[in-house]
Design a protein around this nucleic acid. Structure first.
Length: 417
RNA sequence: CGGGGCGUAGCGUAACGGCUAACGCACUUGGUUUGGGACCAAGGGACUCCGGGUUCGAAUCCCGGCGCCCCGACCA
């Protein structure tokens, strides 16, 4: 992609109506644009990051047997009334000219449960796992923290269906592992803790995945022995205690809830009377679990964690491009050399953003720092004289000089490592 | 939803109740530049959030609304 054609612009002015680091950097870098409080447009750069995150999630969900579907965001009132959740305050409602009301989905149990019921009768069809990546709407009383808490946001939600508690438990653990793989691939696993949180009224706990960050809205207590945490919301009498080993020497931290997994058991299958026939031909209620992770929130979390005073530092796995090719000077020879490398990189299917703009070196460097692509290649009069290019990692100081004819190979190797 | 702050060009800001609403960035044109936010020259761009009031006169004061940020409450 030539940067001169890229829709979206970097800016050095900090938007005055954004305090959160993730929103400031993402807006300044041209990744997102705020449409209204808690509602953002993803510009080409931001959309690429989001797509990468979604693909990682997709791969890990497929790996544990998930089947991707897409449910509607616009939902019927009746099913929400069935579960008694129509009049919940996070529910957004739309009304037509003829006064017909619909709900905008903030979660999808009310769609997926009737859906499954329609197709499934026999124990032979179990277990199965349906997921989607979709836009959710929640009427947050106060949107805040940039893309971390929006009123419209992207969400992957998986629902699992089982004939027994053992089976549900087995899959629950599998999903837990899959989530850690996702966090690992997004480079935030070492800051992410499986966290015990409120289980509502049908189980003692749910599990959250909490990623330690000063931008977090939750307080967690980490047990460094067990490598798990407990959410402040379920701490009794101000005495945090590890729910696993009883350790009381826990570390308090702020954290972002990056994921949540939940055993729903029969809460929704009961409401919709979703039963299956077992081997003996007897009817039983189906058991369910749900597993959520927000790609957009994950994106914001990564920005909160990986940045410095100059901008974002994307992990390779979710960077919008792998290589930022920066061409300094508009001398014909320099441009020719830059184009040559640009074409070679494209031929090698290496994602490259090529800064071909007629801007000063300072502007290009600052923009490159801000956008935060992992690897930067600089071509200039200086490098041309030495028949070489300059290679710099965004995450490190300093740079390497590499002979021009070896550059492509070097970058290819760098991609694989 | 309670408390606080704020709405002026695309963005960031300025302007005592009084001249044609000013400046920087961005944008357009021409020229010179190109290793860390370049320079010169010439331009275009505003219903000062909306509605009402006070006043000879309102961006400025008052009332109402809407929007945005922060704190709190809320948050499967």
């Amino acid at each position: 992609m030539k940067q001169s054609q890229l829709f979206g612009k970097t800016t050095y002015e900090i938007p005055k109506d954004e305090q959160s680091m993730n929103a400031q950097l993402l807006i300044r870098g041209g990744f997102v644009d705020k449409s209204m409080a808690g509602v953002y447009t993803y510009l080409p750069l931001g959309k690429r990051v989001l797509a990468k995150i979604e693909n990682i999630i997709r791969e890990e969900m497929d790996a544990i047997g998930g089947q991707e579907i897409l449910m509607p965001a616009l939902q019927n009132k009746k099913d929400w009334q069935t579960t008694g959740r129509w009049d919940i305050d996070v529910m957004m409602k739309v009304k037509t000219f003829f006064d017909k009301e619909y709900g905008l989905g903030w979660t999808h149990e009310e769609v997926v449960t009737p859906l499954a019921k329609k197709y499934i009768r026999s124990y032979k069809d179990f277990p199965f796992y349906l997921y989607q990546i979709q836009t959710k709407f929640r009427s947050e009383k106060r949107a805040k923290s940039g893309i971390l808490r929006g009123r419209e946001f992207s969400m992957k939600d998986l629902y699992s269906f089982h004939t027994s508690e053992e089976d549900l438990n087995k899959f629950y653990d599998l999903a837990k592992d899959a989530y850690f793989k996702i966090f690992d691939r997004a480079n935030i696993k070492n800051k992410t803790y499986l966290t015990y949180a409120s289980g509502g009224d049908f189980s003692k706990y749910s599990h959250e995945f909490q990623t330690v960050s000063s931008a977090g809205e939750d307080i967690i207590y980490i047990c460094e022995k067990c490598n798990i945490a407990i959410n402040k919301e379920i701490v009794e009498n101000n005495h945090p205690k590890c729910p696993k080993c009883g350790n009381e020497n826990l570390k308090e931290d702020k954290a972002i809830e990056t994921g949540n997994i939940f055993k729903l058991n029969t809460k929704f299958t009961q409401a919709f009377n979703f039963k299956f026939l077992d081997k003996k031909g007897k009817e039983n209620l189906v058991l369910m679990g749900c597993y959520g992770i927000g790609p957009s929130r994950l994106m914001g979390t990564v920005v909160e964690i990986f940045n410095d005073k100059n901008g974002i530092i994307w992990p390779k796995s979710i960077a919008p491009y792998q290589v930022h090719l920066v061409c300094l000077g508009n001398d014909d020879n320099i441009i020719k050399e830059a184009e040559k490398i640009y074409n070679s990189l494209q031929k090698e299917k290496i994602e490259v953003l090529y800064d071909d703009r007629n801007e000063s070196a300072g502007v290009k460097f600052k923009d490159s720092d801000l956008i935060g692509i992992p690897l930067r290649i600089v071509i200039s009069k200086k490098t041309l004289e030495k028949d070489s290019v300059e290679v710099k990692r965004r995450s490190e100081d300093g740079f390497k000089i590499i002979k021009a004819d070896k550059a492509i190979n070097f970058i290819k190797m760098n991609q694989e490592s």
